[in-house]
Design a protein around this nucleic acid. Sequence first.
DNA 1: ACACCATGTTGAG
DNA 2: TCAACCTGGTGTT
Length: 333
Amino acid sequence: MPEGHTIHRLAHEYSVRFAPGTPLQVTSPQGKFAESAALLDGHPLTATEAHGKHLFLGFGPYGWIHIHLGLFGKVTFDDERSAAARPAKADTIRLRLATPTHSADLRGPTACALLTAPEKQAIHDRLGPDPLRADADPDRAWQRVSASRTTIAGLLVDQAVVAGVGNVYRAEVLFRHGIDPYTPGRGLPRGQWDAIWQDLRALMRDGVRDNRIDTVRPEHLPEAMGRPPRKDDHGGEVYVYRRAALPCHLCGTPVRTANLAARNLFWCPVCQPPSTGPSLTETIRRPSRSQNPCGSHGATSDPNATVASASAPSRSSRTRPAAASETSGTPPK
DNA sequence: ACACCATGTTGAG
DNA sequence: TCAACCTGGTGTT
């Protein structure tokens, strides 16, 4: 489950278990990192650092292990292993750090390589500001955002613009601020950007602390609203992420989903309406109305489920203006 | 056993 | 705009 909060959390977890000065056993049971592991074996960890979704483990003069978990990567520490639950296949462990009392196993990363300091710096250089880092400058991100015709949804997950935000935080932060994901960056008011940034900082900090993503405000929690808690997925309470076709917690409208740059985007068309403000004459890539494949679960069992309407011409053009016939349900709240 | 999906990124066409 | 890559969990035969 790797968005930025996971990586920052890991940087801390590693530093706590492998204090400076403690010689480490460094191995690569799976083999792909074996050569570098041999080089580092017996040496202590000297620093850990996170920037966005990139994790760096410092080994003094020997350089830095650069780790990127990608979509599947995972780190498990032996002390949190619920003995019964884990089969512990050694043949998939890319990197193992161990002392007599602790061990950390890395599996399935996209990247795990030993870098020199300049190589590490090159990675920092191509990343945008990270809301979780003290040295982050949100103005730098704003420069990019405010000059771009790309959608805010696209910009938020562009690691060169903002580092650390992934698919969950993107969907959730846009919902929390009622922002249409298809708003072009240059059409976003400065105030809204500032609010997004500030909120990301807070949300992601909570994520580091709790080791999961919770984005629902207290007044909208299941207990507060008398709705059943989320049972299905991974942990945290969310507004729209992975809730396609389910009723919006606030207005009941079915949550919409679309494929944006090979990622699943989720949003509430009513709570995040297209901006009709002036100077927004841009034509944005926006999915046509009838795309919600809600065939998965029981039919849209909702009161205010007005999804249909535009049985429009099956125009092959993918770009179309923001059809404004969406306002069907009114937030009961 | 098998299919499919996932909080991600890169590189080819 | 794809496909490929890395792994594990869930759901389907």
